[in-house]
């Protein structure tokens, strides 16, 4: 049956859903996912929640990018000493 290749299981459906959170699911993927939704309430719920989680992760990404990571002067001095001992 032609239709059969559009059928996917929940593991595959949620994988596509995760991909699409980064806008990286293909059109065929999305067709398969939407067909899956017709008969699976659990993955529909997963997807709804996943969108919420994505906005949460976005918030985390934003606050994370504001941090500038630096070594302290003490750490740098220690690092310098350990290098000098090897030169």
């Amino acid at each position: 049956m032609m239709f059969k290749k559009f059928l996917i299981n929940c593991d595959q459906a949620t994988t596509i859903c995760d991909k699409s959170q980064y806008n990286e699911a293909t059109l065929l993927d999305k067709v398969k996912l939407n067909i899956h939704f017709l008969r699976c309430k659990i993955c529909t719920l997963y997807t709804k929640q996943n969108v919420f989680l994505s906005s949460m992760y976005k918030g985390q990404a934003k606050s994370c990018k504001q941090i500038k990571h630096c070594l302290t002067d003490v750490e740098k001095t220690a690092l310098k000493k350990s290098i000098e001992s090897k030169i």
């Binding site: 949620t14 994988t15 995760d18 991909k19 959170q21 929640q49 996943n50 989680l53």
Partner: peptide, 12 residues
């Protein structure tokens, strides 16, 4: 994607 999928399901 397998890793991302498992991580996200676990985090959820």
């Amino acid at each position: 994607w397998v890793i991302i999928h498992r991580a996200r399901t676990q985090l959820r």
